[in-house]
Design a protein around this nucleic acid. Sequence first.
DNA 1: TATGAAGCTTGACGTTGCGTCAAGGTCAAG
DNA 2: CTTGACCTTGACGCAACGTCAAGCTTCATA
Lengths: 255, 255
Amino acid sequence: MSMTPEVTTYSIQDVAKAAGTTSRTLRHYQDIGLLMPSRTGHNGYRYYDGQALLRLQRILLLRQLGLGLPEITKVLEGTRDTTAALRRHLELLMQERDRLELQIASVKTTIDKTERGEQLMAKEMFDGFDHTQYKEEVEERWGKDAYAKGDRWWRGMSDAERASWKEQSKQLLADWVAAGQSGLAAESAEAQALAQRQYDWLASANDGQEVSFDYFTGLGDMYVADPRFGTNYGGEQGATFVRDAMKVYADGHLK
Amino acid sequence: MSMTPEVTTYSIQDVAKAAGTTSRTLRHYQDIGLLMPSRTGHNGYRYYDGQALLRLQRILLLRQLGLGLPEITKVLEGTRDTTAALRRHLELLMQERDRLELQIASVKTTIDKTERGEQLMAKEMFDGFDHTQYKEEVEERWGKDAYAKGDRWWRGMSDAERASWKEQSKQLLADWVAAGQSGLAAESAEAQALAQRQYDWLASANDGQEVSFDYFTGLGDMYVADPRFGTNYGGEQGATFVRDAMKVYADGHLK
DNA sequence: TATGAAGCTTGACGTTGCGTCAAGGTCAAG
DNA sequence: CTTGACCTTGACGCAACGTCAAGCTTCATA
C-alpha cells in the first residue's frame, strides 16, 4: 500500500460514464448534498476520487430500487438502517402495485363498456327505427329515405367530424346513464341540459332540420317501449327518466 | 332551435363538492382549457351549469383511470377516440406494473442479501471456515463446536445487544471499505485502529477468548483468497489492504 | 346599516429528479 | 490563434394540483 495517498481523480464526465449516469445528475447530487466532489479545481471543475465513485454506485443502486434521494441520504449517513428503509419502501411499492392492478381492471371494463355503448349508439342512429312502433310516424316526418339521408350526412363528414360526433354520442349516452343513476329529477337543470343536448344531437344528425314536439316526445316514449333502450340507458327506470326529462324539455322549449 | 335554456348554475364550491374535488382543481382545468365555467360573473366569480358538471364528472372518471389531462382534453374534444386512448393507456399501465414487479423483486432480494450479508458476517465468524484451508487450524483453536458456541452467545444477548453488535459489524465493514478506497497505508494510524477494532470484534464474538497471531493473520490471508470477502471489502485490492493492515497489527500486538 | 364570517379572485411558489437549453470560461491540439 | 471538446453557473420545464398570501364580494346578523 502506498504511503502518500496519491489518489487518482476523475473528471465529472469520467465518473458519470463510469457509473452510467450523467454529469447533470452529479451536479444535482452536489446541490442537495448527497455526493460532493472530493476536490474542486481553481477553475471550478469538479474532481472525484474512488471513494466518491463508490458512494455514487451505492446511491445509484438504491435509486434503482426506487428509494428517494432524501431517504438515500439518510441511509448513507447512517441515520437510517438500510434494511429498514428498504422494507418500508417495499411496502409502498406493493401498495402502488395493488393500486395499479385495480386501475388496470377498471380501464379494461371501461373499454369494454365503452365499446358496447358505441356500437349500440351507431345502431340507434341508423337502423334503430326499423324495429319500433313509431316507424311510420318517423318515416312520415323524416322521410322514407331517412336512413339514406343519414348515411349521406355521415359520409359527408370528415374523419375528424365523424370522430367528434361519435364521441359526442357516447358522451351523451354515458351522461344520461350517470344522471339517471344519480337519482336526479327530470326537471333538474342537469337533466334538462341533457335533454337539450339530446335535441341538438338529433337535429345535428339531420342537417339542422327542426325536431318537432311530437317527434321528440314520441322518441322518448319509444325509449321506454323498446327494451334495447332500457338496456342501454340503465334499465327501464333509466329509460323512464330519459323520457320524462325529454317531455319536460319539450314542454318548455318545443311547442 | 332551442330557446334560451334557463339553466340553474352553481358556484365553484358547489360544483367541487358535488363532484368530489376542489375549487383549485377547477381553476386549474380552466387554466389549461379543459373545463371552462359556463358563465363568469361581473365580479369574476365562476359559475357552472349541469352540462359543465357532467363534463367534469367525465373528466374525473378518466383521470381516475389514470389518463393525463392533455389526453383527456383530446378525448373530450373528439380529437382522440376514447377506446383507443384507453387501450394505449392500458399498455402503459401494464408496462408500469411489470416494472414495479421487477423492482419489488429486486428490493426483496436486496433485503435478503443485505440480511444474509449481516448473517454472513456472523457466519464467517462461526462456520465460514468450513470452506477454507484454515478449517483444521481454526477448529483446533476455536473448538469443533465453534458454531454452537457462537449460536449460544448470539442467543444469550438481548435484542438491543444484538442490534448493537450488528450495527458495529456493518460499521466496521463500511469503515474498512472507505479506508481502502481512500488509499490509506496499511501502517497508517487509521488502518491500525481498524485492525484493533477487528481484533476486538473477533474476540467479542467468542466470549473474549484470546485471538492468536496465526489465526488473525491467517484470517487476513483468507480474506484475500476468498472472493466473497473481496466482494464485501471493495474488490481484491480492498481485501489486500485489510490483510496487510491486520498483518501489521498482528506483528505489533500479537506476539 | 355596519360588521364579521364565508367565499371568491388572482398570483406565485413548492413538489421529484433531473433534462435541456443558454451564455460563456478552460484546455489541449493543430 | 483557432477549433472543438469539456467545464461552469443559472434557470425553465415537467404533472397536477396543494398551499399560502393579499385583497375583493356577498351574505347573514345585530
